[in-house]
Amino acid sequence: MSLPLVVTTSSPSQTKALGSALAGLLGDGDLVVLAGDLGAGKTCLTQGIGAGLGVTGRITSPTFTIANEHIGRIPLHHLDVYRLDQLEETLDLDLPELLEHGVTVIEWGEPFLPALSEDRLIIRLFLGPDDDDRRIEFELHAGFVDRLDALRVAIAPWSVSC
């Protein structure tokens, strides 16, 4: 089951701050799938998540290497699967092993959902009306649903009143 939750940010630094706040909900074995067009802020949000997980090194785009690992209080596996074009290719990434330790964030992961764990947080980022505005939607699935209340609290500073 899933429940949509929506926030807005109005600068890259706010998107990073949102990421840091989300990190408080995340732990070993968690999977976060990021969806959104070019420039929507997927890597930016991941930089915030990394900061929240205690990663001190620089979190750069994983587009070229496909998978980057960062050492923090909890390890962060940061993937960009845009360039993979078949489901089978995700097998080479050894996702089950990555998922055992640390938090895994996968950019452009939506086409690969059938190959991914059911327990996942899907975050969709959209370009907003102004240059720096972003609309960000959350979907909790399976094991994540228990964290609905905690998520509401974490994202409250950026929440949209519907």
Binding site: I66, R83, L84, D85, E89, D92
Partner: peptide, 9 residues
């Protein structure tokens, strides 16, 4: 054809 380097290819 794929708009980028496809690792498996």
């Amino acid at each position: 054809r794929f708009g980028g380097v496809v690792p498996e290819v």
